[in-house]
Amino acid sequence: MIKRVIALTLLAGLGLLFLGLLLDYRPDTDLNLSARYYAERTAPDLGAANIVTAIVVTYRGLDTLGEVTVLFLSATIVGLVLALGRRRGQAPAGLAPVGELLTTGSRMLTPLILLLGAYVFVNGHLTPGGGFQGGAILASGILLLLLADPLRHFSHGLISAVESLAGVFYVAIGLAGLVWAGGFLDNRILPLGDLGALFSAGAIPVIYSLIGLKVGAEFASMLASLAETEEL
């Protein structure tokens, strides 16, 4: 009871703070300086149609590298934490069998989900989406495989190979930008091409595809380590 009162008091204070913020807030009517810079310079400088992607991959590329690293660390820790409590030799009793229709459906739909993921991260510089969304969609494809066959064994070797190769190439492209273009993760090591074409915006599609593979592999390894908390 006392706990609830304390919580409510805290929240009331926070709510007052929020109310003050809300009442003082005036929506902008024009872009601020940095946003204006991005809006004006993205197309001529980087050749990317999606300005959000340009910010994530190039202008703030270092942050993105950090975020991918955070994801990698959390996937690793999930694997470690779950491996500690792995129960061996217990066949889970009373599992409901998978219906035939779900099996067939997953065999039919998984390739399509993976293809959609590939589309989303390859087209990251043209359409909404990119490596993070595409990676999540790839992991959803893996999730469908797992739902259709709960005892399926995933190849950890393949997942971590994809993960680390994508990471290595990502950093290598960043360093190539340092050598041949303006700085770390500069996308102008490849020709910019025409705005709106698939092969354009320099290295952005390549980098975002690598991020997509890496994020997909990280989520897939989380799913695999969850699924293998019980080994047969």
Partner: peptide
């Protein structure tokens, strides 16, 4: 267009 910077922040925040 609208301000792209908050979107770029939120994009990664959701995945994280």
């Amino acid at each position: 267009i609208i301000d792209p910077v908050p979107q770029a922040l939120v994009l990664t925040a959701i995945v994280i």
